[in-house]
Nucleic acid binder design. Structure first.
Length: 221
DNA sequence: AATTCCAGCAACCGCCAGAAG
DNA sequence: ACTTCTGGCGGTTGCTGGAAT
């Protein structure tokens, strides 16, 4: 077994280590992960303990295969949010961001024919992009900014929302009348509009209602 | 039966932000 | 105001087990 800094163990967790960590959490609760090693003698760094709990030991985690419904939900949420795995996982009961990310990369991306790393950036002003890694909220964009789409889709101006995920998809909100989500990297891109006559896909508004995503967007979609 | 290949997944890494001291 | 600690995030790595040869 490899050892890292300060003699911390690395690699797969043993049943005994799991038991020690569970006992610690039962006694002291979650948090203060760096204390685990000091209190229990467990030779794992705090980060590793936290991850083990969040991704495996927590009783709220659902183990086993993903259902069709979960797949569908993840695909739609990914379409909306891009690689914001924690946001997506937060709306898939019992699943962690790591589970969702792995499931996407190993199953769903293949299912959808998505090529990884294929990406053409929208030409959005950098100051309109929300910071990565901390969710998406309350990001202001100049009212007259304009995003250039890589396809023959519309180019919108006015109130806009841009979510940069650093990976495969782009989400743009072009004006108040017709929100558009564009997916790159999909062989068969699907996108949402607020066109109520289109019954083949849910409207963005419906999705936002269904998954309580409204807090992610401004201007009350 | 032995070896190689590869998909799946658990875990690690680096970075970042906010809280606490 | 500054430093340290803690936790959260997404990307990546590498181990494992099963399939293929």
């Amino acid at each position: 077994m490899e050892r890292g800094e300060k003699g911390h163990r690395k690699g797969l967790w043993t049943e005994e280590e799991d038991r020690v960590l569970m006992d610690y959490i039962r006694l002291h609760g979650k948090g203060r992960w760096n204390r685990v090693a000091k209190v229990t003698g467990l030779k794992r760094c705090g980060k590793s303990c936290r991850l083990r709990w969040i991704n495996y030991l927590s009783p709220s985690i659902k183990h086993g295969d993903f259902s069709e419904e979960e797949d569908d939900l993840i695909i739609r949420l990914h379409n909306l949010l891009g690689n914001r795995w924690s946001l997506i996982a937060g709306r898939v009961p019992g699943r962690t961001d790591n589970q969702v990310k792995n499931h996407w990369n190993t199953h769903l991306s293949k299912k959808l024919g998505i090529k990884r790393k294929q990406r053409t950036k929208l030409k959005a002003p950098s100051e309109t992009l929300p910071p990565k890694g901390k969710g998406v909220e309350n990001v202001s964009a100049p009212a007259d900014t304009c995003f250039e789409l890589p396809s023959d889709k519309k180019v919108g101006t006015g109130d806009q929302k841009y979510i940069d995920d650093g990976a495969q998809s782009e989400v743009g909100y072009f004006g108040l009348e017709e929100p558009i989500i564009v997916n790159e990297g999909y062989e068969n891109p699907f996108w949402f509009t607020n066109d109520e006559s289109n019954l083949s896909t849910p409207t963005l508004t419906q999705l936002l209602d269904q998954y309580s995503l409204d807090n992610l967007f401004w201007h009350g979609l």
